[in-house]
């Protein structure tokens, strides 16, 4: 009996030491925002209201991964009310001129590598898929922190990620250069440990 317990213990210890912790993003306390230049005068800010994602982190092995899936139809630039105009800006953004939400209802980010600085993840390299085109994008983690589990709550991690992509590389060319080519992504996230 004792040999069996020792064998089980020996098998579990290294597994526990190298197992990645998995987290599910809490959409209530997370946001996927973007900004884009307009006419060289000002930045227009927008957000996506519906998304989901997961990430894993193995602090011992300094590895991890992240997946994010965003509903393109949930784009919101604060112009939902068309008023006396035929269409609002957000309605236009959903059409084939921009996000083409009817044909591509989701855009995704899948990590290929997590870069650590010391003990903390500092960047996520991965592939962003938009309009059926996949291109490498790196998200810089300007903050990443975890609060330990308590008697009433699971361990919770959060952070802020920043990245830039050129929309023309994904085939979204309408309006360039009046509407900028560079899209700045700002993702704030909080996630509970699974």
């Amino acid at each position: 009996m004792s040999k069996v317990l020792i064998a089980i213990f020996a098998a579990l210890v290294p597994a526990a030491a190298t197992a990645a912790d998995a987290y599910t993003i809490d959409p209530i306390h997370s946001s996927v925002n973007f900004k884009v230049d307009h006419l060289g005068l000002a930045m227009i800010h927008g957000r996506f209201g519906k998304f989901n994602g997961k990430f894993t982190i193995d602090r011992a092995a300094k590895t991890g991964g992240a997946d994010l899936s965003i509903e393109t139809a949930s784009v919101d630039t604060g112009d939902n009310d068309k008023g006396s105009r035929p269409r609002s800006r957000d309605e236009h953004l959903r059409t084939a001129d921009f996000f083409n939400a009817a044909e591509f209802p989701r855009m995704t980010f899948k990590s290929s590598r997590v870069v650590f600085t010391g003990e903390t993840p500092s960047a996520i390299e991965g592939n962003f898929t938009l309009l059926g085109v996949t291109r490498p994008v790196t998200l810089q983690l300007v903050r990443f922190k975890c609060n330990p589990a308590t008697a009433t709550a699971k361990e919770r991690c959060g952070g802020d990620a920043r990245g830039t992509l050129k929309r023309s590389e994904f085939g979204m060319k309408r309006g360039i250069p009046n509407i900028g080519d560079d899209i700045a992504l700002e993702i704030g996230f909080e996630a509970d440990k699974d």
Binding site: P86, R87, E91, H92, R94, T95, A96, D97, R174
Partner: peptide, 9 residues
């Protein structure tokens, strides 16, 4: 097309 928010069409 433009009334339906499509510049492309």
């Amino acid at each position: 097309g433009i009334l339906s928010a499509s510049i492309g069409y």
